[in-house]
Design a protein around this nucleic acid. Structure first.
Lengths: 263, 263
DNA sequence: CCTTGAACCTCCCGCTACGGGAGGTTCTAG
DNA sequence: CTAGAACCTCCCGTAGCGGGAGGTTCAAGG
């Protein structure tokens, strides 16, 4: 009654593949990289796998299924007869890695979901509009780090959607008023203009989380504005040229103000 | 005041890389595969990217950040001037893909967590013991499909841990009793033996979800037992030879029983 | 004993999305 | 005019195999 489980049982590469559910090609590969070689060969060169090999293959498969690389698997299988500490370190690291992957996937899912909602919401909006949304996402990601974006999103969530809409409306008013001054070439040290600009900045700051990083985030936002005025203007109801002039005007006002303060 | 945002602005490959946060090498690559080529070249052959190219690159980056392949990105950027339907299909498919990835990650996390608990629990258990756990995971995955494993896990959760322990204890008793009969060479049609075997099978069935697949799962489990008696025995307190004999004995009892019924 | 089809052998090219280097040309600031 | 930075093209490498070419060996049947 010692059929399939006899101690001296040998497997050909095809039989081993069948028994463990890996492909023959994968076994060749494991042999090539020295992860798992047949302990014996027939005189003609055919691989004969022993039960020891079978067990090793099972371990390889199990560790692979945890998302480890073949190199990592080889590493722990070399040391691990008595080295479970290495194993634990590896698994701990792997767990951390999996968690960051899960987080990433979660974020992407959230974003894809949002884009799909935009596509369905307006029932096929303007393709250009959608493309510009994509571009702005990219611009945003280029200028802000992951954590900055996280904090900004958090802040928006805190404020709530209606507060965000209200801010947009107030901001639109500010744009109109300031464009008026730009056209009128109001001097940059005009107190009324200064007041408008400080309200503009306050409005922006409301979306930045307070704290030390606030400064960096604000600076970054301003730089993004200056570098990409044409891009951003495309999504706004005012012509790019006017917005560019406005941004330059803002900058002049701010510089004058700080110069005055310093003196 | 038309500095960085002038319409006719051109970017060298290095400038474009800097502006968008991609590497120069990646831009060469995008050019090679025809995803994004500079619209112009200088007489000496240096790439000059236009604003159109810049915008395209932003789109590429945004879509890449959603986890799409360069080929998929190229696909939607070719059609999509007026084809948001394709875009929506792609994003929908991507969402599904992300969900299955998240599920997979979740499962692996769960398993790694379990293994780490085993490592910490017994504070460095027998390395061999741990390796055998790995092997059994692999054997299990080889024989059962994902959904079968899911259902088995679900069933175990339903029963609760103490019920599982109780079943193990009862099962150990059955093993002892049956081994006794094996040694005594009790005939396979002995009513007492039959009773033991039917209790054995009932115990196993309790862990299989009811329904049509029950049969398949049970058959698979039995096949796994027969193919891997030595492997499995390593984790049990009885010698492999005895377990092999027991399994063979079980099989004979079952065959006899069914033969009798058929006649 | 011979044949035939399946299984096996080794070598090699392919995939993704670039990284990095070699070896040469061109740009740009001083 | 010169030096160093930036740019050009070509090529090899990655991880984990898939798949094929072209040849040898095995196992079963006639």
């Amino acid at each position: 009654m010692s059929g399939k489980n006899a101690i001296g049982r040998r497997w050909s590469i095809g039989e081993l593949a069948q028994a463990t559910g890996v492909t023959v090609r994968a076994l060749y590969h494991y042999d090539e990289i020295g992860l798992l070689s047949a302990s014996e060969r027939t005189v003609s060169g055919h691989r004969r796998y022993t039960e020891h090999d079978l067990r090793r293959l099972y371990r390889v498969r199990a560790l692979r299924a945890l998302g480890l690389s073949l190199e990592e698997v080889a590493g722990v299988l070399v040391n691990s007869p008595d080295d479970l500490a290495t194993m634990r370190e590896l698994l701990t690291a792997q767990l951390r890695d999996l968690e960051s992957q899960a987080e990433r996937i979660h974020r992407i899912k959230h974003r894809v979901h949002g884009l799909l909602r935009q596509l369905d919401d307006a029932s096929m909006p303007d393709p250009d509009q959608f493309m510009m949304t994509l571009e702005m996402i990219s611009v945003f990601e280029t200028y802000f780090t992951q954590e900055q974006r996280d904090r900004l999103a958090e802040r928006r969530a805190e404020l709530g959607p209606e507060a965000v809409e209200a801010a947009k409306a107030r901001w639109a008013d500010l744009v109109e008023e300031l464009l008026h001054h730009v056209r009128a070439e109001t001097p940059v040290d005009d107190p009324q203009v200064r007041d408008l600009v400080s309200r503009w900045d306050a409005l922006g700051s409301a979306f930045h989380p307070g704290g030390q990083q606030d400064e960096r985030t604000t600076t970054t936002a301003r730089r993004m504005w200056q570098d990409n005025t044409t891009e951003i203007s495309r999504r706004l109801p005012w012509p790019a040229g006017q917005m560019a002039a406005l941004v330059a005007y803002l900058e002049r006002v701010r510089n004058t103000a700080s110069t005055n303060r310093e003196e």
